[in-house]
Design a protein around this nucleic acid. Sequence first.
DNA 1: AAGTCATACAACCGCCGGAAT
DNA 2: TATTCCGGCGGTTGTATGACT
Length: 196
Amino acid sequence: MAKSVEKTRALRKGAWSPEEDQKLTAYIKRYGIWNWAEMAKPAGLQRSGKSCRLRWVNYLRPGIKHGNFTKEEEQTIIDLHQKLGNRWSAIASKLPGRTDNEIKNHWHAHLRKRFKYDLNSLPESEPCQPSNAETDQNSSFRIDLLPPNVPRPSILESYGSISTDSLASSSSNPPFEIEEKPNIKGSIGSLDNFKA
DNA sequence: AAGTCATACAACCGCCGGAAT
DNA sequence: TATTCCGGCGGTTGTATGACT
């Protein structure tokens, strides 16, 4: 359905222009989010639904923090990464205003190296030190090296009420109000999240 | 000053799970 | 119950920018 809609149009890729940002923001402000795949066209965008969603979730939605991570945020990321592994959305849910994409990038750019360094600076007897730092460099030393008694997937359940979805659409108090809602079959509930 | 390399960030891709039909 | 569709997630890639030679 929506896939066919997207297939019939030549979709733009690559960096978003300020005009596109403005169009998407204005559309969501007016109509809310009802169906990413279908929204792009009436919003005047030649973008895939996924592209629109990503742009909104990661950059345009209210409440997003940009810029440097604080020491506290970095420590939180490191702590949570030790517990959760590469579950960026779960980590992001604990850092208001930060997105999973941003955290993931920051981890790969800064923290992973630092974390590796810290591990390597540990005494020889330290049990959690990776045995082969060189090969781990290529495998990006994921916390898959966690001991088997550390619960991983199930931990997510303890965050059950928190999801990037709720984070994405909440920011608790969106600074705008939906003016009207297109009468389109399949409109979904996330619209309500934008109602003040 | 020019070329090369490394880093950081933005965006895309493919897969998966849940909801709707 | 099976199928389809959408949204979300994590991994990966592309590009811009700065540092270094």
